[in-house]
Nucleic acid binder design. Structure first.
Length: 645
RNA sequence: GCCGGCAUAGCUCAGAGGUAGAGCAGCGGUCUUGUAAACCGCAGGUCGUCGGUUCGAUUCCGACUGCCGGCUCCA
């Protein structure tokens, strides 16, 4: 009981150390440094954790104070703006009940309300205006620690029944704080700014209905999203950034680059135009080449199979609501949502020896899954797609080597596309699953052993596995910093059992093989969508649907342009000739917008010397060279699947 | 599936209760073009679909379809 005498050491960014008593607040530290800092501070950080200026410090360590100039201030500002918004809503509609705000304030804030109708865009304007009034009041954010009972009483008195419910979710023993600013009181762990005037610019973004606690069976609340910054200019630049991101949107680029389209007659299923199909097929060629070198054999399997098969595989029971069905000759068929059952059928066509294993089947077959209407989006979530799918049938002893080989291939592929910082996740048995506990334990252990022995870092996602087995998923970050799940390696003891798959072991007895499901790019559609946004449509040369365009300076050089095109075409280059009656600048601009890697200008000088003037889409001018000089470099880049030009 | 928004020419968008306009693209001409948009002209639309209100609807109302932003879901 000597808390009053205990001291903490705080290390400031300049390296200096300060000794303060336990229970000192960051604000007091700021005041000690200088009155100006105390006034301007919006928040603090201890050992990398953001803390409220009024929160008594319990531990020392690396210590920082933030003012509006620091990027971190945004977290405090948006979290505080969130309360101001809730205050505004309550002032406008006193009967509204509040639920909770957002956890991640790195970009946005949000608040959920129990409100009898949806908020309209006009409501948002009104709320934003009211927020302006509240900000003008420049009220102070007050932090109060209360007991659980006190908190329950306060919110019950305020009629905030959702809040009282939420209070029950706070683990016993955790301290409970409430924040007050203006006329608003909320259960909140903070941290917040000191005064509302530190919130310089606010914008409400959109409203939407959300399920309470994210559960579809719960009532729907109304959520409002917004963002806030210390300065108006920061808000403007954020909105500008959002606007610019739209230019990279694969749905936008898909139209601009003439890659694919969608049609009302086939919702959520893309129609690939020639250029999109070129990319698609080039990707398939790449994967095919890579995996065939590693012992995979490609198979082609039916699109539509008797529903009996899907009963046998377990898909019907687990996945029926996401399948397409068709009745013909009074017989029920299902369109395949996965390839694995058909691969089991091939496996079973003859007696397998342990000497045959592993059997590795790959399949680029088209799959159909009925995705609920509200969830589809561009190429990233479609109802018809193909995967770079494969299934390996092997013995238990072979699992580790197979999984490791898959992982190394997957990493090689991601490297080709320039995806970095790949995160690996191990997902374990979900609630809805096939097979016994022992099967699952064995499968999960096998994957852990493979990952562990290869010294691969991974995180465990409990209950996120496939219904037939645990899996290792690969998350990549694209150029825009977004995370996507691409590859997956899934262990399956269940399907072999259901299909009664066997092999004859060295002991002459029958054994059951293990099945490994594998995808690397995942859905090709989705991968193309991600790649479009990752590259902004400027595909690496080997994938570019048009690799070079020949541009005669005028009609007079059209004929020479044609001979150049023929030379390149014969060499296997995807080349076009733009001999339209337009100025060179016009056609350059167009090729540039189409992100064609090479523009080959031919005029009098080039014709004379049998050359082409090489311009890159980067704007670089390579000068004049003969086709014979130009080709080898291009070929080398294509063959090595380089990202360079 | 749930909440909200949107739907006008190939694309981007304007418009009003009296059956529609611009820019770009397209087509025709002039120009014969040298590294990110030459000039002139022409054509192009059942205003997503169906129903209702109205003398009259593309405009107002409703349903449906599709798309967009969220929620949930994604074996």
């Amino acid at each position: 009981m000597s808390q009053a005498t205990e001291n903490l050491i705080l290390t400031l960014p300049d390296g200096s150390a300060r000794e303060v008593a336990v229970g000192t607040t960051p604000l007091e530290v700021a005041a000690d440094i200088g009155p100006r800092l105390a006034k301007d501070a919006v928040g603090a950080e201890v050992e990398g954790k953001l803390v409220d200026l009024r929160q008594p410090l319990a531990e020392g360590g690396a210590f920082r104070l933030f003012t509006a100039k620091d990027a971190e201030a945004g977290i405090f500002i948006r979290h505080s703006a969130e309360h101001v918004m809730a205050d505004a809503v309550k002032r406008l509609w006193p009967e509204v009940e509040i639920d909770v705000g957002r956890i991640d304030h790195s970009e946005k804030f949000q608040y959920d309300f129990r409100f009898p109708r949806a908020f309209t865009p006009e409501d948002l304007e009104q709320i934003e205006a009211k927020m302006g009034e509240i900000l003008a009041e420049d009220s102070t954010f007050e932090r109060i620690e209360v007991s659980r009972e006190e908190a329950a009483r306060i919110f019950a008195e305020m009629g905030e029944t959702l809040k009282v419910e939420r209070l029950k979710d706070i683990p016993e023993g955790e301290s409970i704080t409430i924040y007050r600013d203006g006329s608003f009181t909320d259960l909140c762990r903070g941290p917040h700014v000191q005064r509302s005037s530190q919130i310089g610019a606010v914008k409400l973004l959109e409203a939407s209905g959300v399920y309470w606690k994210g559960d579809e069976t719960n009532e729907m609340l109304q959520r409002i999203y917004g963002t806030a910054f210390a300065k108006k200019e920061e808000l403007a630049s954020y909105l500008e950034q959002v606007e610019q991101a739209k230019a990279r949107d694969h749905r936008r680029l898909g139209v601009d680059l003439d890659l694919f389209s969608f049609n009302e007659h086939a919702p959520a299923t893309p129609l690939f135009h020639p250029k999109g199909a070129e990319i698609y097929n080039t990707l398939v060629d790449y994967i095919r080449e890579l995996q065939n070198r590693r012992g995979f054999e490609e198979v082609i399997t039916p699109q539509i199979l008797d529903v009996d098969l899907w009963h046998l595989s377990g898909h019907y029971d687990n996945y029926r609501e996401a399948m397409f069905f068709s009745e013909v000759d009074e017989r029920e068929f299902a369109v395949k949502p996965m390839n694995c059952p058909t691969h089991c059928l091939i496996y079973k066509t003859r007696l397998r020896s342990y000497r045959d294993l592993p059997v590795r089947y790959s399949d680029f077959g088209r799959l159909h899954r009925y995705e609920r209407s509200g969830v589809t989006s561009g190429l990233t979530r479609v109802r018809s797609f193909a995967q770079d799918d494969a299934h390996v049938f092997c013995t238990e002893e072979q699992i580790e080597a197979e999984v490791l080989a898959m992982i190394s291939t997957i990493m090689e592929i991601y490297d080709t596309f320039g995806f970095e910082s790949i995160e690996i996740e191990l997902s374990t048995r979900p609630a809805k699953s096939l097979g016994t506990a022992e099967m699952w334990a064995k499968a999960e252990e096998a994957l852990k052993a493979a990952l562990g022995n290869a010294d691969i870092d991974y995180t465990i996602h409990p209950g996120e596995g496939a219904f037939y087995g645990p899996k290792v998923d690969f998350q990549v970050n694209d150029a825009l910093g977004r995370q996507w799940q691409l590859g997956t390696v899934q262990l399956d003891y269940s399907m072999p059992e259901r299909f009664e798959l066997e092999y004859i072991g060295a002991d002459g007895a029958e054994h059951q093989p293990v099945m490994i499901h594998r995808a690397m790019l995942g859905s090709l559609e989705r991968f193309i969508g991600i790649l479009i946004e990752h590259t902004g449509g400027a595909f690496p040369l080997w994938l570019a649907p048009v690799q070079a365009v020949v541009l005669p300076v005028s009609e007079k050089f059209l004929e020479y342009g044609e001979t150049v095109r023929e030379q390149l075409r014969d060499a296997g280059v995807r080349v076009q000739l733009d001999g339209r009656n337009e100025k060179l600048g016009y056609r350059i601009r167009e090729a540039q917008l189409q992100k064609v890697p090479y523009m080959l200008v031919v005029g009098a000088r080039e014709q004379e010397a049998g050359q082409v003037a090489v311009r890159l889409r980067t704007g670089e001018d390579r000068g004049a060279q003969t086709v014979a000089e130009f080709l080898p470099g291009l070929r080398e880049l294509v063959e090595s699947r380089s990202r360079e030009l």
